[in-house]
Nucleic acid binder design. Structure first.
Lengths: 389, 389
DNA sequence: CCGGTTAGTCCACACTGTTGTTTAACTTGG
DNA sequence: CCAAGTTAAACAACAGTGTGGACTAACCGG
C-alpha cells in the first residue's frame, strides 16, 4: 500500500456541490461526508435548497431537449416564482442555458423560454475495476462518455501500482476539461464491500485487495472526491430509468443491482443484490459460496459444458422470481458473457416472464441490454448524483 | 354497493395533519391526497416543516420513555434552537408533554427536560379484511392497541353490507376518543390491489370484491381518511424496526412485506412482495397462479399432507434467498398457519440462513415473531404515518 | 395599432432554520 | 451558605427559503 506522491495536494476547486455562492459554510464534521450521515429525515434549509436544485436539474434532464420554466413548475410542484429563483441560480452556476423559445403555432401569449443542461459545465469520472482490466472514463453532465482509457490488471498483484496508474490516467483524462469542474470519481468494484467507508472486503479472485481502504487510497492519489460502489449497483445507475428497475449481470459471476422506489438499494450491510446466490435447486451443484444449487452455480456449470440454453433457463427463472418479488418495470441485462450472446437469454427471460407473471400485460416488464460501458458509466453517474440527487 | 347514510357527513375535525395553527391553507387539489402525488423530490416550506416535525416525533418515539431536546438535536442533526421551536409546536398541538427532568448523578448543569409522546393525543384505526373475518382495532399514538372488534365475513357475499358493518364498528370504537382526534383508517386486504387509488383487483377467494373502489366506499361511509394496503405490507409496518426488514407471511397463502432503506416497497404496480411465487423447483407441483414449483405451492402441498417439516424447509429456502438478495437485517414471521406452530419454521430458517449466508456473523439476521394482530396494527400504523412520516 | 394571453420577473412577505446572547437550573468547591 | 462553573433552553436578530400579487415582456388575433 504505497502512498506515493499525493498528486494535486488539495482538491483544485472541486468540493463545492451544487451551490457555489457561499464561501465555505460546511458545518459537516468530515469534509466529504454527505452533510449528515444517519439523520433520520430531518432537513436543513441548505439541504432543502440542494434538494430542490437537484429536483429541477433532474426534471430538465428528464425532459431531454429543452423545457420551460412553467413546465418545471408543473413537474416539480413548486411555484413559478420558486422555479424562477432556482433556475436563476443554476444559470449563474453555468449548469443551465437558455436555448431559444418554444414557438407553438396557434398559441397566444409569450412563448416559453427553453432551458437546457450545459453538458460541459461539469464532468464526472467513473472506473470499473475488474479482475482483468481497469476501465476509466469521463462523462459530461448528461452522462455521455467523453473520453476513456483502459489498462490490464493482474488479479494476483498488489493494488498500489494499479492505483498509481489509475491516478495517472485520471490526470490525463481531466487535463483538458475546459472550465468544466470534475465532480468526482466513482469506482465500481466486484465483491462485497463497504460503500460508506469505501473499504473492500474479500474481493473474490483478487487476494491482495482484501481489506483495502480503496476510497482513502484513491482520494489521496487524485485529490478528487471518491465514491466506491459495487459493480452491479453501478450498472443499474448507468442511465436514468424507471423508479423500479434491476440490472442483471452475467459475467464471471451473476449479480444484480436494484433501484426500488427511485432509490438505489444496497441493503443493510451494503450487500444487497446477491441475485446469483438464490437457490433454485436444493440438490444442485455446489457453489463457490459454500451452498448448493445457487443460480450462479447452475449458470456457470451449464456454460462450462457449452449449454447456453440451460444457463439462460436458470437465469430466466431467477429474473422471473426477482420481478415477482419486487415488481420492477425494467430489467437491464449486462455482463460480458451475456452481452456476448444475448438472444438466448432474452428469449428465455421473455418466456419465463410470460409464464410466471399472472398478468403479463398489466405487469409489463421492459427488457433492455446494457452497453459494455454500463458499469463505469454508472460509476460516473454516482459522481453526478452530487448534482442530481 | 349500497351507499347508505353517509355517517358523520363531514370529517369531524380530522383532516389537519401535524400543524394545526394555520386556518386552512391547503393548496392541495384533492383534500386527502398527500399534497403532491408524483413530485420528484421537490419540497416546499410547508412540507419541510411537516417532515421535520415527523422526524422529531419519530426520534421521540424511538427513544422509548423520554428524550431531551439536546438529544433530539443530536439525533436529527438540527440545531438546538430549531428543536426548541419544533417541540414548542408539538407541545402546543398536544402531541408531546414535558415529563420531569433527567437528573443524572454527578453531572453538572441544568438537567435536561424530558419529552414524551402523549399516547392519547391522537388515535388511528386499522382493519384486516380477510376471507373469514373482519378485524378492526384502534391504537393510540404509540401504536398500542386500545380496543378491538371483529365480525365474520362470508367470502362469497357482497361487500356492501360488510362495509356497512365496518362503518358501524368504526363509530363504536371511536365514540369514546376523548379529545383524541382520529387520524384515519387503514385497511389491509389480501390479493393484488391498487394502493394509490384504493381499488381492489382480483382478490383471490372473494369474487364479489373484484374491482371494488374500497377507499371511496369506506371513506363515504365513515368520513375518515382511508388508506388501502396489502395485508403483508401492513404486516411489515406493525411496529417500528430496522431500515431493512421483511415480514414473511404463511397463512392461506405465502407472501412478504418489505421495508428497504427505511421505506415501504410496493413495487411499480404496487405488486411487490409476491414472495410466495418464487420458483424453487421448475418441475414442482402446479400452483394456483398458473406456474409450477412456486414456494407457496410447495408449502401448501406439504401442509396438506401434514409435512410441516417440508413446508418449513421450502419457506426457509425462500427466506434465505430473500435475505441474500435484499440484505435485510430482520425477518418478522407472521400468518395464522405459521404462528400456530412457529418452532419448526424458525428452526428451518435459522438453519438455512446459517448454511446460505457466507458470513452469518457479519450478516446477522434477527428473526422475530409477529403477533396475531400485526396486520391490523400495521394498517393503523399506516394512518399514524401521517404524523410520523 | 390595440386588446388578449401567456411567460417570466420584481417586490414585499411569512415562515423556515441559524447564530449569538441571555436566563434558568443544576453541581461543585470554598 | 454562597459564588463560580456548567449545561439546558429560550429570546432576539438574521439569512435564506418559497409564496402571493403586481408588473413587464413577448407573442397572437383582429
Amino acid at each position: 500500500m504505497t502512498t506515493d506522491p499525493p498528486a494535486p495536494p488539495a482538491p483544485p476547486g472541486t468540493p463545492a456541490p451544487p451551490g457555489t455562492s457561499a464561501p465555505a459554510p460546511a458545518p459537516a464534521p468530515s469534509p466529504d461526508a454527505p452533510s449528515q450521515s444517519s439523520a433520520p429525515g430531518a432537513l436543513n434549509l441548505a439541504l432543502l435548497r440542494d434538494r430542490n436544485d437537484a429536483a429541477v436539474l433532474r426534471a430538465v434532464r428528464a425532459a431531454g431537449d429543452g423545457t420551460s420554466r412553467v413546465e418545471l413548475a408543473v413537474r416539480t410542484g413548486l411555484t413559478a416564482q420558486a422555479i424562477s429563483k432556482i433556475t436563476a441560480r443554476l444559470l449563474a452556476d453555468g449548469l443551465l442555458t437558455e436555448a431559444g423559445r418554444s414557438h407553438v403555432a396557434g398559441r397566444s401569449g409569450k412563448p416559453r423560454t427553453l432551458l437546457r443542461l450545459v453538458p460541459d459545465a461539469r464532468s464526472a469520472l467513473g472506473a470499473e475495476i475488474g479482475r482483468r482490466e481497469l476501465h476509466l472514463l469521463r462523462t459530461d453532465l448528461t452522462g455521455a462518455v467523453v473520453v476513456r482509457a483502459r489498462t490490464p490488471i493482474d488479479p494476483d498483484g498488489e493494488p498500489g501500482p494499479i492505483l498509481d496508474r489509475l491516478a495517472a490516467m485520471v490526470r490525463e483524462l481531466t487535463a483538458d476539461t475546459g472550465g468544466g469542474r470534475v465532480l468526482g470519481l466513482g469506482l465500481a468494484c466486484p465483491g462485497p464491500l463497504d460503500t460508506r467507508d469505501g473499504i473492500l472486503h474479500q474481493v473474490t479472485g483478487m487476494p491482495r485487495w482484501h481489506g483495502l481502504h480503496l476510497r482513502e487510497a484513491v482520494q489521496d492519489r487524485t485529490g478528487l472526491p471518491v465514491l466506491v460502489e459495487k459493480n452491479t449497483t453501478a450498472g443499474v445507475l448507468s442511465r436514468p430509468g424507471p423508479d423500479h428497475r434491476a440490472f442483471v449481470y452475467l459475467g464471471d459471476g451473476v449479480g444484480a443491482g436494484l433501484v426500488l422506489g427511485g432509490r438505489v438499494q444496497r441493503g443493510a450491510r451494503t450487500n444487497a443484490g446477491e441475485f446469483g446466490h438464490q437457490c433454485l435447486d436444493p440438490d444442485g451443484p455446489p457453489c463457490a459460496c459454500g451452498a448448493r444449487g445457487c443460480l450462479e452455480a447452475l449458470c456457470l456449470a451449464a456454460l462450462r459444458t457449452g449449454r447456453t440454453d440451460r444457463a439462460a433457463a436458470a437465469l430466466a427463472l431467477g429474473v422471473a422470481n426477482l420481478v415477482r418479488l419486487l415488481d420492477v418495470e425494467e430489467v437491464v441485462l449486462g455482463g460480458a458473457t451475456l452481452l456476448g450472446d444475448p438472444e438466448p437469454y432474452e428469449a428465455a427471460i421473455r418466456t419465463a416472464l410470460a409464464a410466471r407473471l399472472p398478468d403479463p400485460h398489466w405487469q409489463h416488464v421492459t427488457l433492455t441490454r446494457a452497453t459494455a460501458l454500463a458499469v463505469p458509466q454508472g460509476a460516473a453517474a454516482l459522481a453526478l448524483s452530487r448534482l442530481f440527487g
